[in-house]
Design a protein around this nucleic acid. Structure first.
Length: 315
RNA sequence: GGGUCGGUGGCAGAGUGGUCAAUUGCACCAGACUGUAAAUCUGGCGGGCUCAGCCCUACGGGGGUUCAAAUCCCUCCCGGCCCA
């Protein structure tokens, strides 16, 4: 069930957290008569607004945004879930003669957009729990050895401590009877994107990016992030495992429990945000389809020049 | 002014004569990543090199003891606490 063909004409704007995607996206979208689809695993959740830096209501009024606020915070998303909905929105937008512009910094979603996913089984939580318990009793390397017996190719690629991926690989094997390494081969057959396809990422000097991240966290606190967290905690149902992983919320909850003071919490969130940005950068630098746009300061990049430069790099 | 405890790598904090370029945590750098991904995992982290080894500079400053000191002694500077 390849969805990759759905994205052959789309544009993608990515970049690390705090690089200025939202502002530039609006300009880009208005220039291209586009509608925006969030390529973001956390802005999916209602009620998580400040911490996930969702576009403001004014910004959303300027043009249609998709896949924002589509789940309750106790619900769970997954790449596959997102990809399916993304393809649907993309087709719909293009059917209306407009351009789909994906904006966001979730690298796995970006990769799925570019390459698709292999058709495999969804998460089986009971099975995962069983495997994780097994790892807890005998150690993660034990699970790795077990994987090596049924799928040596996957085991070779995975570090013996990489619990998540070892569990996923074993899960796939147990429910399909096929090694995950074999199913993953499907990526090689993906079609190439069309000539209108564009993919950029905003590339700021590291020191500047980190300063922006640090001050943005402070601004979020000033904007009432603590209250937002308090409210989320008071909901009738607890946050889903996925939603809970959004940067900062766990630290806010600990702060509300009195585990540390405000200053310590802010510093923790800032550090974790910087580290996330760093990991994002590793992806962008290694995805050849994704072209860097050098940005610095408050000035937005020149749309026209981005398009021109991109053409020259494609020849 | 007197007494006392302490000054270790970006920070916190071990070490208390050789096995110490110095445990560990954080920060930072690099990498991985196919249905949890703002997650998870891995490696590096004084400087230099003809690099599984060698050289240099290092544990507040200076001096000393010793074959050998971050570790012992003297002195100076700085900080905390107590007395005045």
């Amino acid at each position: 069930m390849s969805t990759a063909h759905a994205f052959h004409r789309c544009w993608i704007l990515s970049g690390p957290t705090g690089s200025g995607k939202t502002a530039f996206a609006l300009q880009l979208a208005e220039h291209a008569n586009a509608e925006i689809i969030a390529m973001d695993s956390m802005t999916l959740y209602r009620g998580m607004d400040i911490g996930t830096a969702k576009p403001s209501t004014e910004e959303r009024r300027r043009l249609p945004h998709h896949l924002l606020d589509v789940l309750d915070p106790w619900e769970s998303a997954s790449v596959a879930w997102w990809l399916e909905h993304a393809a649907e929105r993309c087709r719909d937008i293009e059917a209306r003669g407009k351009r789909a512009l994906f904006v966001g910094g979730t690298p796995l979603y970006l990769k799925a957009l570019l390459f698709g996913l292999f058709s495999g089984p969804p998460a089986n939580h009971d099975l995962r729990q069983r495997l994780e318990r097994e790892a807890g009793e005998h150690g993660v390397p034990h699970l790795h050895r077990r994987l090596a017996e049924v799928d040596s190719a996957a085991a070779t690629r995975l570090h013996p401590n990489d619990l998540r991926r070892i569990v996923r690989a074993l899960e796939v094997f147990e429910v399909t009877g096929k090694p995950i390494s074999q199913l993953q081969e499907q990526w090689r057959n993906e079609a190439q994107p069309g000539p209108e396809f564009r993919c950029w990422w905003l590339d700021r000097p590291r020191a500047e990016l980190f300063e922006r991240i640090n001050s943005r966290v402070e601004k979020m606190i000033e904007a009432g992030w603590v209250e937002e967290a308090r409210h989320l905690r008071a909901l009738p149902r607890p946050l889903s495992r996925q939603a809970r992983q959004a940067l900062g919320y766990e630290e806010l909850f600990d702060y509300l429990d009195g585990k540390f003071d405000l200053k310590t919490m802010v510093e923790l969130i800032q550090a974790h945000s910087r580290q996330f940005a760093k990991r994002q950068l590793t992806w962008f630098r290694h995805l050849p389809q994704c072209k860097p746009i050098a940005v610095s300061g408050d000035a937005l990049p020149d749309v026209q020049r981005c398009l021109v430069n991109d053409d020259t790099t494609r020849q």
